[in-house]
Structures are given as C-alpha cells and as structure tokens.
Amino acid sequence: MSTGNDLLRRLASATGVYRGRGDGPESGPFVARMAVASVVGGRAVTLDYEAVSDRNGLQHVEHTLLVVGPGGRLELHVASLELPGVVRFSQLGPGQFTAYEGPLVARIVLALPQPDAISYAWWWSRDETEPREQSRADLHRTG
C-alpha cells in the first residue's frame, strides 16, 4: 500500500471528533474542532473543520473529502467560505497537498503525528512567492 493510501487508511480507522488549539500569522490564536468520518466503506474520509476565536468568532468553516484520485494519488476536495466553490488539492508528498486549481498558491499539510492526534495546516501566498504556513491546528481525539 502506498504512503498516500496509508494516510487514508489511518484516518478511516481514526474516526471521531478532534479538538485543539491553533495559531498562525494570518489566523491568530484560535480553538479548532474537526470531525473525521469514514464513508463508502473506508474508500473516502470526510473532514469537517472549524476554527473559532474570541476576536473573530467563527473564522473558518470547511468540509473536505479525502479520496484516491483517478491517477492513484490522494486528493482533498475542499469547500469553505474563503474559496470559490470546491477546490481540489493533490498530494505531492506524504501529507502535503497543493491546490490543483484555485485563485491562491496554496497547500494543506495533514499529519497524524501520534495515535489520536491530527495536525492540520493551511499554507498560502498572496503573490507568486512560495506558500508559507498561515494557520495550523494541533488536535486530539475526544471521548
């Protein structure tokens, strides 16, 4: 099984609600929640993610589908208020996804650093420079 499929398999077997804290130059400090669900018999995973802060209230809501794409690479299909419709991110390396199409040079970094933990980061650039981390949440499964 490839590294990409291993990430899908690990997430499909680690379903539940994750909570934690995040921070970043763009987001500032926030509290995050992610619900992870296995769908279609483990062939896909949904990630429902939100970030809330005292300063901004609900500052990010996202619904993401993780699947194996037609070329055999993992893909994230992301819908959020900040994006124009659904944007597809294709896996470049273990846990690193880049925007296949979209208005920003963007990357999502998704890692499972230990059992019952997820690290989820958004990287982007508003110009032609290489993306840099703008927001990252470190989450732990509850219950």
Rank of each mutant, 00 (worst) to 15 (best):
E101V: 14
G143Y: 01
A137S: 14
E133Y: 05
Q134L: 06
Q91N: 07
L66P: 06
G71C: 12
M1H: 05
T15E: 08
G20D: 07
L92Q: 15
G57Y: 03
V40Y: 13
E133R: 15
H77Y: 02
G42Y: 10
E50H: 09
L58T: 11
Q134D: 05
G93C: 07
G72A: 12
V105F: 07
R88L: 05
R21Y: 01
W124F: 14
V67T: 15
S90P: 00
V39S: 00
G22C: 07
G20W: 01
L7G: 07
V45Q: 02
L112H: 09
A106R: 10
Q96Y: 12
P103Y: 03
S13L: 07
L74Q: 08
S90R: 15
Y18N: 04
R9I: 09
P29M: 05
A106W: 01
E82I: 06
Q59C: 05
N5Q: 14
A51Y: 03
R126L: 12
G69Q: 07
I108V: 12
L74F: 11
A14V: 02
R9M: 12
R132S: 13
V86S: 07
A137L: 01
S119E: 13
M34S: 02
V36Y: 03
L139N: 02
V109H: 13
P29V: 03
E50M: 10
A111S: 13
I108Q: 03
V105M: 08
E128D: 13
A137F: 00
A32H: 04
P94R: 01
V68S: 11
L81A: 14
A51S: 13
V36G: 06
Q59W: 00
A121T: 10
D48S: 15
L81T: 14
V105S: 12
